[in-house]
Design a binder for these strands. Structure first.
Length: 216
DNA sequence: AAGCGACCCAACCGCGATGAC
DNA sequence: CGTCATCGCGGTTGGGTCGCT
């Protein structure tokens, strides 16, 4: 690896937090790379931005996720996949990092979901779940979205050696396994169900997904 | 009480997108 | 139009905490 960075890493101290808060109170957000020069903070701009967005911002809600939040995350994740920022955008006070962590540490376990593989290059998500304890039934998530004939996926797949995908946006594929015990409690795959319980969601997704796929 | 492993979450890394010049 | 800086996103890592033996 390369030599020592001029910037500090690891957990933030109270003093560092205060420097960052004071800076933002005066200069506002943005121009993150100026912060170490102007404040003397030994943190790179990227680290400052992340610290503010994920922790220090007054908009960030702390504490446990509510049942309503959990339910919304589950539904949105089914619809959108691992687009955490999009999901977090629909949950007031929660960051994408919080949602991602909460999903990985709590919700995926609760639902018995295991990430089997993740790759790029297909135009839809494939969700596998047990039926009657033997076979796996498949369900294409493209049936669950407003525009099934999405244009993504034209690009060649590019999968890194550690399995993470590199392409942005819609062309990621995951296969999920849902344990039988949990399956019946989480039959949340249908659009009309989602629409009826989250009134503004479909309108939002229509716009978001239309923009992503059609560039409009 | 000590050791160990699992869990959780803040922070980091790498990459693509976007904007300024 | 090309280049560079900055921003934003998603996957991964690392270390602190907790519970079990």
């Amino acid at each position: 690896m390369e030599g020592k960075s001029e910037y500090k890493r690891g957990l933030w101290t109270v003093e560092e937090d205060k420097l960052l808060i004071d800076y933002i109170a005066v200069h506002g957000k943005g121009k993150w790379n100026r912060i170490p020069k102007l404040t003397g903070l030994k943190r790179c701009g990227k680290s400052c931005r992340l610290r503010w967005i994920n922790y220090l911002s007054p908009n960030v809600k702390r504490g446990d996720f509510t049942e309503e939040e959990d339910d919304l995350i589950i539904r949105l994740h089914n619809l959108l996949g691992n687009r955490w920022s999009l999901i977090a955008g629909r949950i007031s006070g929660r960051t994408d990092n919080q949602v991602k962590n909460h999903w990985n540490t709590h919700l995926s376990k609760r639902l018995g979901i295991k990430k089997v593989k993740s790759k790029v290059g297909a135009s839809s998500q494939t969700i596998l779940f047990k039926e009657s304890g033997k076979s796996l039934r498949t369900c294409s998530a493209s049936n669950l979205t407003p525009t099934p004939d999405c244009k993504a996926g034209a690009a060649d797949p590019e999968v890194t050696e550690n399995g993470s995908h590199r392409a942005a946006g819609v062309n990621s594929v995951q296969e999920l396994r849902i344990d039988e015990d949990n399956y019946e409690n989480h039959f949340w795959f249908l659009n009309d169900d989602l629409d009826s319980q989250v009134p503004s969601l479909m309108e939002f997704l229509d716009k978001s997904l239309d923009f992503v796929w059609n560039g409009m």
